[in-house]
């Protein structure tokens, strides 16, 4: 059994910033745009080193998305950066028409996603972004789990042609994936083998899934843990193979249970291998102010919630 250890907690947005710094040095076609949130997105080093490849658009996200689409015409790879809420819902039609339908090579990089944005409250906590983005034809949707994986994803999407939504967050969370792990878009990562239940987690919930699995193993439950960093395209083969073995699944995401990873899993299993599923996700609700830990507890998004979901789904196994 492979065990994961926290190499030193960091925020995933800093992984994005580190990725941008590296991309700035290695890929001259990469340009960055930001809507008045440079410090929050951690891209100051990129700007310092390549001022001519950075565009500060001010508080005007719709314009940012259109400018990004235009910059691809001429061969550049624009990375837009702002909070997840302002990267998606606010600019949905701009992304839909000027980026997705027009098949533009824009990377929409979204920080402060989910409820762990914390004290700012529901106006800034988007729990609908994965659904909004995965419904757009041609859009790749990625939600990495820690600093290292976010950095790796930031680098990997430059090598992939097409629009990408890259979602990460504000809180400091364990950094546990190997720093040298190559990021393969659309490839699920098996973090732990097991035979009784499959936990499929994404983003900040992956570490929580590992904590839950450890506790469950101590109770004699054999748990398989899969890190789905790419919501779309979903690694359906890995999912089906695992659930064929375990017979049930718990999905875990910092997102509404309507439209998120869980529904993609349910659709896949309903089509190929029906199995009981429990959803660890917010239940069609807005968030509120609080510390990330308090909110994860209140909205049922932590290791305890995953553990309870596993015990529940095990009882439903035929």
């Amino acid at each position: 059994m492979k065990k994961y250890t926290d190499q030193g907690s960091k925020d995933t947005r800093s992984g994005f910033g580190a990725g941008m710094t590296e991309l700035g040095r290695t890929n001259p076609r990469v340009v960055a745009l930001c809507a008045d949130l440079v410090a929050s997105l951690k891209i100051q080093p990129f700007i310092d080193e390549h001022p001519e490849r950075f565009f500060q658009v001010g508080i005007a996200e719709a314009n940012m998305m259109g400018i990004a689409a235009g910059l691809t015409i001429g061969g550049f790879i624009p990375y837009t950066s702002t909070f997840a809420n302002f990267s998606t819902g606010r600019v949905y039609d701009q992304i839909r028409q000027s980026i997705a339908y027009s098949d533009k090579n824009v990377k929409i990089c979204a920080s402060h996603a989910g409820i762990t944005l914390g004290e700012d409250g529901a106006t800034h906590q988007i729990l609908e972004d994965l659904g909004l983005m995965k419904m757009l034809p041609g859009m790749t949707v990625i939600n990495p789990c820690d600093f290292n994986q976010t950095k790796a994803a930031t680098l990997a999407i430059a090598e992939h042609y097409g629009p990408v939504y890259l979602r990460f967050g504000r809180p400091v969370v364990p950094n546990f994936t190997p720093a040298d792990q190559k990021f393969e878009i659309g490839k699920a990562l098996h973090l732990q083998e097991g035979s009784d239940v499959t936990i499929v987690a994404t983003g900040h919930l992956v570490w929580q899934a590992l904590l839950a699995a450890e506790n469950l193993e101590n109770q004699g439950v054999s748990v398989e843990v899969i890190n789905i960093h790419t919501i779309k395209p979903l690694d359906e083969e890995a999912l089906i193979r695992s659930v064929r073995k375990t017979g049930c699944v718990v999905s875990a995401e910092e997102h509404n249970f309507l439209g998120g990873l869980g529904e993609s899993i349910a659709r896949t299993l309903a089509t190929h291998h029906p199995a009981p599923q429990e959803f660890v996700a917010t239940k069609d609700t807005f968030g509120e102010s609080g510390t990330p830990e308090q909110l994860m507890e209140k909205y049922g998004l932590n290791n305890k919630a995953i553990e309870e979901a596993v015990l529940k789904v095990l009882k439903r196994k035929v």
Partner: peptide
């Protein structure tokens, strides 16, 4: 949406 796109292409 076209003005923003045109600006982006002009910047490119």
């Amino acid at each position: 949406q076209g003005m923003s796109v045109a600006i982006g292409a002009a910047l490119a």
